[in-house]
């Protein structure tokens, strides 16, 4: 490691920590999605169950894409731009949609 690179980098490793936070959150989302799919397919593969299953997978993919895009932005520069409210809202809406899907399945 050269002297210049060490000086450029944030000693608190903020972008890296934020990147890992996105990874952790994606992992939590994966666990939720797997449990959702298990719930959906519990009573055998009926059409409604398959639709719910596909929906949960789509929500998970959307979240994955969002996280991936943000991680790329974070690693692209030394002073990354702020998270946009739209991305934050989309991530939250994915979560909410999964919960609503779950409520429908459980009920």
């Amino acid at each position: 490691m050269s002297e210049g690179a060490a000086a450029d980098r944030d000693p608190g490793l903020q972008p890296e920590r934020t990147r890992l936070a996105w990874r952790r959150t994606t992992l939590s989302g994966t666990v939720s999605a797997v449990l959702a799919v298990k719930t959906a397919l519990h009573g055998g593969p009926s059409p409604a169950a398959l639709v719910a299953c596909a929906l949960c997978c789509a929500l998970w993919l959307a979240f994955l894409y969002l996280a991936h895009r943000r991680i790329r932005t974070l690693s692209s520069s030394d002073t990354p731009p702020t998270l946009t409210p739209r991305a934050a809202t989309t991530a939250v809406l994915c979560t909410v949609a999964m919960a609503v899907c779950g409520a429908a399945l459980v009920f």
């Binding site: 959150t25 939590s28 989302g29 449990l35 719930t39 979560t95 919960a99």
Partner: peptide, 10 residues
């Protein structure tokens, strides 16, 4: 939030 939702499924 995701953990709570996962807990609901669990």
């Amino acid at each position: 939030a995701l953990a709570l939702i996962g807990g609901g499924f669990a």
